[in-house]
Design a protein around this nucleic acid. Structure first.
Length: 251
DNA sequence: AAGTTACGCAACCGCTGTGTA
DNA sequence: TTACACAGCGGTTGCGTAACT
């Protein structure tokens, strides 16, 4: 026996919201709040919508503090990092990105970020050679990329090209260590970093935010395996603390 | 210019978690 | 303790539009 539906589907409107509906919902919530009861809200607000639909519209689109537009490099980095730790818990990830909704981040991950990772693995997954992308990198003149052979050794730890602020462009850098069985992902992107060489909260250099085995990395792209970690509260707490600590030195 | 494909995003569906009677 | 109702969440779908042929 299934659960009773939250509303009479035949009597509620579905599909895209009209500007008039948006206005009604916005006006009602601005004046009265949600009242903690989304099921009753549409009737009170004069909307022929399911309560769930109202809630979604408000949370994902109409809320005043929603941030629209491009994701910053810093946001990209947070998403990558959080996803690697906790998996597809979009609401938790969204909580770390003010103004972004879980739906937004989920869509962004599925359409952009995941694709970037996919491209990377397709380039490097079966190869000892890292990083054709790096070679097209807009490097500063005094930095030279190591030969592919040396790049596969464990002690390969390149210092990225940097200008006075440690900027290295709007790309990601990937390292392959240990004959491609261990992979390090490094976001080298953009103006969210201050401090030459990306010193992190522990005084380490290189800003090496993630390490995966190649298989883990592939799974990361195609599955939600990281949610296996979600029972590990210690891990999550450490993780959030680390992010906060890093943010403190970034800004 | 027209048709087709790919992409991005808003919205829906159904399950889970939580509060309460 | 149990059953129920609702909120919240994540996966998925489908529509509009841009890009390509």
């Amino acid at each position: 026996m299934g659960r009773a539906p939250c509303c009479d589907k035949s009597k509620v409107k579905k599909g895209p919201w009209s500007p008039e509906e948006d206005m009604k919902l916005k006006d009602y919530i601005n004046k009265n709040g949600t009242g903690g009861n989304w099921i009753a809200l549409p009737l009170k607000a004069g909307l022929k919508r399911c309560g769930k639909s109202c809630r979604l519209r408000w949370l994902n689109y109409l809320r005043p503090d929603i941030k629209h537009g491009e994701f910053s490099d810093h946001e990209d980095r947070l998403i990558y990092t959080l996803f690697s730790s906790i998996g597809s818990r979009w609401s938790v990830i969204a909580a770390q990105l003010p103004g972004r909704t879980d739906n937004d981040i989920k869509n962004y991950w599925n359409t952009k970020l995941k694709k970037r990772l996919t491209n990377f693995v397709s380039i490097n997954g079966q190869s000892e050679k890292p990083i054709s992308r790096l070679e097209s990198f807009n490097c500063s003149s005094n930095w030279s990329y190591p030969s592919s052979s040396s790049a596969t050794t464990l002690d390969y730890n390149p210092i990225p090209p940097s200008d006075d602020y440690g900027f290295i462009g709007h790309e990601e850098i990937y390292h392959v260590k240990d004959n491609s069985t261990l992979l390090m992902f490094e976001n080298g992107g953009g103006n969210s970093y201050k401090g030459v060489d990306h010193e992190n909260a522990r005084g380490e250099y290189g800003d090496s935010t993630m390490e995966f085995s190649l298989e883990e990395f592939k799974k990361l792209i195609s599955t939600n395996l990281c949610s296996n970690n979600t029972n590990n509260n210690n891990l999550n707490n450490v993780f959030v603390d680390e992010i906060k600590a890093e943010e403190n030195i970034m800004y």
